[in-house]
Computed example of a mutant assay.
Amino acid sequence: MNSAVTSRTLARTDSVRPFKAGAYGFVLLGIGHLALSAAAATATQTSERRAVDTVMRESTFALLGLERTVLDVFNGMSIAMAFFSITCGLLILAAVRHAPALVQRRTAFGWCALAVSLAVLVVSVLLLPPPPIVVLTVTSCAFGLSLRRATTVSAHAAEAA
Rank of each mutant, 00 (worst) to 15 (best):
Arg12Ile: 00
Ala38Ser: 13
Val138Ile: 15
Thr6Val: 06
Cys141Ala: 15
Val52Pro: 01
Ala150Leu: 09
Phe74Leu: 02
Leu136Phe: 12
Leu91Asn: 14
Ala4Thr: 14
Ala108Met: 14
Leu90Arg: 06
Glu67Thr: 05
Val55Cys: 07
Leu29Phe: 03
Met1Pro: 11
Ala80Met: 15
Leu102Arg: 10
Leu126Ser: 10
Gly22Asp: 04
Ala38Tyr: 14
Leu36Gly: 05
Arg68Val: 05
Leu126Gly: 00
Arg68Cys: 01
Thr42Arg: 08
Ala119Tyr: 13
Arg68Asn: 00
Ala4Phe: 08
Ala157Ser: 11
Glu67Pro: 02
Leu63Gln: 13
Thr9Leu: 15
Thr42Gln: 15
Ala80Pro: 12
Ala158Gln: 03
Leu91Gly: 10
Leu127Asp: 09
Arg49Asp: 08
Ala119Ser: 13
Leu121Glu: 04
Val122Gly: 06
Ser154Arg: 12
Arg105Cys: 07
Val138His: 02
Ala142Gly: 05
Arg57Glu: 05
Pro130Arg: 09
Val123Phe: 06
Ser146Gln: 02
Arg50Gly: 02
Ile31Gly: 03
His156Asp: 11
Ala158Met: 12
Ala35Cys: 06
Pro131Val: 10
Ala35Phe: 06
Phe109Asp: 08
Ser85Ile: 05
Ala142Arg: 03
Ser59Gln: 13
Val135Asn: 06
Thr69Gly: 07
Asp72Leu: 01
Asp53Arg: 14
Thr46Ala: 02
Leu147Ser: 12
Ala158Leu: 08
Arg68Glu: 02
Leu136Lys: 12
Thr42Ser: 15
Pro130Ser: 13
Val73Ile: 04
Gly65Lys: 11
Ala158Thr: 02
Ala150Lys: 08
Ala41Tyr: 12
Lys20Thr: 09
Glu58Met: 11
Ala142Val: 02
Arg68Met: 09
Ala101Gly: 07
Asp72Cys: 03
Val96Asp: 01
Arg105His: 06
Met77Pro: 08
Ser3Leu: 14
Asp72Lys: 01
Gly22Phe: 08
His156Phe: 14
Ala157Val: 10
Phe143Asp: 00
Ala150Thr: 11
Arg149Ala: 11
Ser117Thr: 10
Ala142Glu: 04
Ser37Arg: 12
Gln104Val: 00
Trp111His: 11
Glu48Gly: 05
Lys20Trp: 01
Ser124Thr: 09
Ile133Phe: 13
Ala82Glu: 15
Ala82Asp: 14
Ala40Gln: 04
Leu147Cys: 11
His156Asn: 07
Leu118Thr: 09
Gly110Ile: 07
Leu127Ala: 01
Phe84Thr: 13
Pro132Glu: 09
Ala157Trp: 00
Phe143Arg: 03
Leu28Arg: 00
Gly22Trp: 07
Ala161Gln: 12
Arg49Tyr: 02
Ser59Trp: 06
Arg17Gln: 10
Ala40Ser: 12
Ser140Tyr: 02
Ile31Lys: 01
Ala142Tyr: 03
Leu93Asn: 06
Phe143Gln: 00
His156Gly: 10
Ser47Ile: 03
Ala95Arg: 06
Leu34Glu: 03
Leu71Gly: 01
Val123Leu: 00
Val116Asp: 08
Leu34His: 04
Val73Leu: 01
Ala115Thr: 12
Leu36Ile: 15
Val135Glu: 05
Val27Ala: 04
Ala150Cys: 11
Tyr24Glu: 10
Leu63Met: 14
Arg57Pro: 05
Ala155Asn: 04
